[in-house]
């Protein structure tokens, strides 16, 4: 391997992206070549400098709630997964089930009242 070839592989070598055999070739050349060693060190230091000093944004604290609002206008997330499921994906079914349950309950109660009256008479 010559310096030109080594240089072309240097970033991938730094990132651990070379196949093992290729990485060994690059390492062997670097160990024997002062110029390539210097270039590797410069690339590594530049990468570390960028990583340490690039500007980093933080998501807005209300970002998640805004995502929810855009999804379904539900506002703040429920902490209960099943409740969120009910009100986001299954709202019509949930309303129907609740309505049916109320109707059934009222019907049962009415039958109970009727049977009580029948017993009294």
């Amino acid at each position: 391997m010559d310096c030109r070839e080594c240089s072309s592989e240097m970033t991938a070598f730094l990132d651990g992206e070379l196949p093992q055999s290729r990485g060994r070739q690059v390492r062997s050349h670097i160990d024997a070549c002062l110029a390539c060693t210097a270039e590797l060190n410069a690339l590594r230091e530049a990468a570390d400098l960028v990583h340490a000093h690039h500007r980093k944004l933080e998501p807005h604290p209300a970002g998640w709630n805004r995502v929810l609002v855009r999804l379904d206008g539900a506002g703040k997330a429920s902490r209960h997964g099943w409740l969120a499921l009910l009100f986001t994906r299954w709202q019509p079914v949930a309303i129907s089930l609740i309505g049916f349950g109320l109707a059934l309950g009222l019907w049962s109660y009415q039958r109970h009242i009727d049977s009580q009256r029948a017993l009294e008479h």
Binding site: K56, L57, P59, G63, R79, G81, A84, L85, T88
Partner: peptide, 20 residues
Amino acid sequence: KGDVDSYQRLYDVFARRVLN
């Protein structure tokens, strides 16, 4: 499957990186 809590965990992990 509609588990919003799990999706929020994904948001918590990736939002900052996607933003940047």
